[in-house]
Design a protein around this nucleic acid. Structure first.
Length: 333
DNA sequence: AATGGACCCAACCGCCCAGGT
DNA sequence: CACCTGGGCGGTTGGGTCCAT
């Protein structure tokens, strides 16, 4: 037997709360608890919890709050109530909205603006000759496999302002290995045209990002897996999308003849389905906290190496991260 | 000034679970 | 044990606002 409705839907008011209703609810709760309103109990509860109850914080989130949210999101995923528990005055709904509408984008902006050497990149496009060594050889521990973890471990400072950059990775970047950071201009397909987006993808490369024999760029999904794509002098669209969990890889290569550097992989963000288990979910949309197996190996989240209580302690102890602990744990796998 | 798209966020929906009967 | 109920939670929606054209 299914669950009974929480209220008589025909006889309850819905929609935004009026100031009169707010005052009434507050008054009732202060005097008698809930009752008397033509509101479903659930609605009253939510209104109270998210808006009316004392000491609710509204307005801007601080950098410190950002860090806490990012760290916990990286560790335990979208368990907003637990995250809210670490932020006095903030509600799970608030944090959820903040994450979905701002923080996620802010993180990407951080990576663009605050990664060392990025100024150079902003002034110069990559070419075969100037491909920034940082992105060729800079390795991060596998546990730092998402923007939020990079932020939460202090790799990136929490302030941000995002702006588009032009970026590509070229045939010259042959030293791409696992956990190498690659930043790419994001494009998307709109009415059969390729449209430049203001956002930027952060992608982890692996050995597959370059066909070493043919020296051709290849697609690289957020989990580091990818396939080889033939370069042409025109934008090439192949509708052979593969779902890598984190992104759809469009298999598009843009070879700009004017400057022989704009070989840009086109990728499109893909919102993960909650049902995507057993696949790596990539950089941006990672289902962290789940022990998933990507195409090219395994990922570890902080939760693999720490318990929830330890994570809380880590947060309060200024985010020091014990690399050896992760490595020890990896050894035992 | 009009309009359409993007963005934000309060509120709703539906599922799960614990506790009471 | 089965059923009922409400709390808790994460995902989603839709209306208001902003902003670019």
């Amino acid at each position: 037997m299914g669950r009974a409705p929480c209220c008589d839907k025909a006889n309850v008011k819905k929609g935004p709360w009026s100031p009169e209703e707010d005052a009434k609810l507050k008054d009732y709760i202060e005097k008698f608890g809930t009752g008397g309103l033509k509101r479903c109990g659930k609605s009253c509860r939510l209104r109270w919890l998210n808006y009316l109850r004392p000491n609710i914080k509204h307005g801007e989130f601080s950098d410190e709050e950002d860090r806490i949210i990012c760290s916990l999101y990286d560790s335990i995923g979208s368990r907003w109530s637990i995250i809210a528990g670490q932020l006095p005055g903030r509600t799970d709904n608030d944090i959820k909205n903040y994450w979905n509408t701002k923080l996620k984008k802010k993180l990407m902006g951080n990576i663009i603006t605050n990664t060392p050497n990025l100024n150079i990149i902003n002034q110069k496009k990559f070419t075969n000759n100037n491909f920034n060594p940082m992105f060729q050889n800079h390795h991060y521990p596998s546990s730092l496999s998402s923007p939020s973890s990079l932020l939460s471990h202090g790799v990136l400072p929490p302030s941000s302002s995002s702006y588009p950059i032009t970026m590509s990775f070229s045939e010259g970047c042959s030293n791409v290995n696992n956990n190498t950071l690659i930043l790419m201009q994001n494009y998307h397909q709109h009415h059969h045209q390729v449209v430049k987006d203001n956002s930027t993808l952060l992608v982890f490369g692996n050995d597959e990002t370059i066909d070493r024999q043919q020296q051709q760029p290849a697609s690289c999904s957020s989990d580091g897996s990818g396939t080889i794509t033939q370069i042409t002098n025109q934008v090439k669209l192949e509708d052979n999308r593969q779902n890598y969990g984190g992104f759809y890889s469009n298999q598009v290569v843009n070879h700009n003849q004017e400057d022989d550097q704009a070989k840009v992989l086109l990728m499109e963000e893909q919102k993960p389905s909650s049902a995507t288990t057993g696949v790596n979910t990539g950089v941006l949309w990672g289902q962290n906290g789940q022990n998933t197996t990507p195409a090219g190996g395994t990922t570890t989240s902080l939760l693999d190496n720490y318990g929830l209580e330890e994570i809380k302690q880590l947060i309060s102890s200024n985010y020091s991260f014990d690399e050896t602990k992760a490595e020890e744990k990896d050894m035992t796998k």
